[in-house]
Write a protein that binds this DNA or RNA. Structure first.
Lengths: 341, 341
DNA sequence: TTGAAAGCGATACCAA
DNA sequence: TTGGTATCGCTTTCAA
């Protein structure tokens, strides 16, 4: 592998100058810089990340911690983070918790402390006191996407407000019997997200003077199959059925739609369904939803970290990103009751 | 940040011994090792990856190149790779090409040469001659998942054979008018995958003496929305309609199912649909499919690289992984024609 | 604008 | 089994 001294030799300058020239630092004559660049290209020289990391104290890599990589929201954020890192020539080190409980330790103890990364971006995680302490002690810029998280700034939508708007959409259409498909999330993930959505639902119902039936608040695990099963179970029960469902995510909403089909119900005629996300499949399903843009959220979060690594003043406040209603064909006024709007 | 010499001082041994003790190398008395471990824990010491990388020449990180992170197959492979890396205490550096054309250069020139990684695992990529040369010149263990790729070993299913089996399933049910929803992939991705599947389809049709109508071979871009649109276009056309569709992936198959619904067709009564993958949603869609296990494929590929990094003999041959038919409710005999089976 | 030389924090060889 | 020390390849003062 070509080393810096070979480039220096080829150019007739010192290694110090080569280093400066290649990194675009000032105080290098343009002629020298050009010569160095050419030589480096010809020799195929690229600085070793270990060596420069050791010498400079910066790895030019960002750690990204994800709960899993198989959910639309996470991968979309990842794409956004990636786009931003790319533009800054930063590499991404991906820590996938993927249900492996004990693995958090790997991230917090081994990797961060190993100085493999310059900063850390976490998705939808909740941190233990110990972990938060760990993070603080390293003076590593850190941020969370899909918050909020106690003691850390985050980037994300207003969970409660978004859920409220979704629910109000159904109420305005004239629905009174509304179920909520919620996302009971796994241990260690940020429970504030599903909880915020539940609270928004309850608040909207309360404000409209509508009853919230406990048995109509069912867990969908943020997944289509689980939601479909849960919704089917609800529809199987004797007694009155809801005329609408507010699902805490589009994937769950799709599960609800399929469950409606399973029961021979038409959407939106017999059952209205609204979700949150604007998932890639939402349009295909004709799904009315509260659209958010996780790509953007990831990009914004990454940009904040990069700016701070670049010397910018740390921003302490969280960033609230927008969410907006997109009406498609999965919601309509209930069959018997005329719309109020 | 705690350094190795602080641990050495605290323990009363040399840094050399600390290094050996912590890495589990032989020739360290158990008493010493225990003492060192304890001191390291107390001080919160973890070796700097830059420093050890520089000194040892190994980064304990693997580069993983993905075309994008928003397709089920890729993320599933990623989970498998991750599981294997985790067990070996390797970190994952994720290079997401994500449609950013020029970005391949980043991977092949900057990152690999920068020695940020010890090995490289690529998903469904096709390499240019230059890139292949680049890879070879670094003596970096490399492998591809979702091949085959000229000049590189790969891990993947028998594309053609799998497609043939899928098509034969439809033929055995009595279908003669079969369309193929194919995956015209993007530039730079491995075209062998969609091409292999197309060839398998054609071969099965030919062997059965069935005609292949060019206008019934339509591109679905490996995506649900695109496939739904393409399928809708096909169903819109005047003239005879196919009674069955072989989709090159489950996501495309789902698009076909939704298109059938768009046209008021019932599945499987009016249209049978089969896919490839056994996607997370396949069961919910009642989709008959050729199941493959990308998680496993990723794990196997990662294991091969890790073994070689551990000193194992390089394996030169590609690995063929299994795929098997799962019959669900999206396929049945055509309405008019009785099943042959 | 450039060069010389001192680290950065581990690893690995050679002695002991 | 352990310690001393050269070394990995670059960055970064400090001088020139």
């Amino acid at each position: 592998m070509t080393g810096i001294d070979e480039v220096a030799r080829a150019t007739g300058v010192s290694t110090a100058t080569v280093s400066r020239a290649l990194r675009g630092l000032p105080n290098v004559s343009e002629t020298t810089r050009a010569a160095v660049r050419r030589a480096a290209d010809e020799l195929g020289y690229v600085a070793s990340s270990s060596a420069s990391g050791l010498a400079s104290g910066r790895t030019l890599a960002m750690g990204v911690v994800v709960p899993s990589v198989s959910r639309w929201f996470y991968t979309s954020v990842l794409e956004g983070v990636d786009a931003e890192l790319r533009s800054a020539s930063y590499d991404m080190i991906l820590f996938n918790l993927g249900g492996h409980r004990g693995d958090r330790e790997r991230v917090f103890h081994r990797s961060i402390l190993r100085k493999r990364t310059d900063a850390l971006l976490a998705l939808c995680l909740d941190f233990t006191a110990d972990e938060r302490h760990q993070l603080a002690s390293i003076a590593h810029p850190t941020i969370v996407v899909g918050g909020p998280v106690k003691g850390l700034r985050s980037v994300g939508i207003d969970e409660k407000g978004t859920a409220r708007t979704a629910t109000e959409h159904l109420i305005q259409l004239g629905h009174c019997d509304i179920a909520h498909l919620g996302g009971e999330d796994e241990e260690g993930l940020n429970k504030q997200v599903p909880i915020g959505r539940l609270h928004g639902f309850q608040a909207a119902m309360r404000d409209a003077g509508l009853p919230v039936r406990p048995e109509w608040i069912i867990p969908g695990g943020f997944s289509l199959p689980e939601s479909r099963a849960a919704m089917n179970a609800l529809l199987d029960r004797a007694g009155p059925r809801p005329t609408a469902v507010f699902a805490g995510s589009d994937e769950m909403a799709m599960g609800a739609i399929l469950a409606a089909y399973d029961h021979g119900l038409r959407v939106p005629d017999d059952l209205s369904v609204i979700g949150i996300d604007n998932h890639d499949f939402a349009e295909s399903f004709g799904l009315t939803t509260m659209a958010q843009d996780p790509f953007d959220q990831g990009a914004v979060a990454a940009r904040i970290l990069l700016d701070e690594l670049g010397g910018a003043e740390p921003r302490t406040r969280s960033v609230r990103m927008p969410a907006s209603l997109i009406v498609r064909s999965s919601t309509a006024a209930p069959a018997a009751v005329p719309a109020l709007a």
